[in-house]
């Protein structure tokens, strides 16, 4: 399988990641190398093998996720959270307009 510049462009858009023209070309090449390498896993016989998303429950002494009370805990530090925002107003996160000019 070969990854084109257009595929990189499309994938980057899905990830909301802007790329320069130069980056698109570079990543297309490197992605081909990397995917060419990882393709070896398709030679492994995995019939009847179930996937492992996490080893937490299969590798542990404890086979279930510990449960806790569903209790609200108050966090007294709104200004510490809001203080990190690049733009804010009245304790809310401020963003640019959501609709593009051509979508209105």
């Amino acid at each position: 399988m070969s990854i084109s510049k257009e595929t990189v462009e499309y994938t980057a858009k899905l990830a909301r990641l802007g790329l320069s023209e130069e980056e698109k070309g570079l990543y297309a090449k490197q992605l081909n190398d990397i995917l060419g390498y990882v393709d070896v896993i398709n030679s492994v016989d995995t019939k009847n093998i179930s996937p492992t998303a996490s080893t937490r429950l299969s590798a542990g002494k404890q086979k279930t996720t510990p449960m806790r009370q569903d209790k609200t805990v108050k966090f007294d530090g709104i200004e510490k959270i809001i203080g990190n925002a690049p733009a804010q107003e009245d304790n809310m996160f401020k963003v640019p307009k959501i609709m593009g000019d051509d979508e209105q």
Partner: peptide
């Protein structure tokens, strides 16, 4: 670029802000 961290100055609309912030 919304809750914390860098936000791009190039932000015509929300999509633009995402793309450029992460770029």
């Amino acid at each position: 670029g919304v809750h914390y961290g860098h936000r791009s100055d190039k932000q015509n609309d929300l999509m633009d802000m995402y793309l450029n912030t992460r770029k």
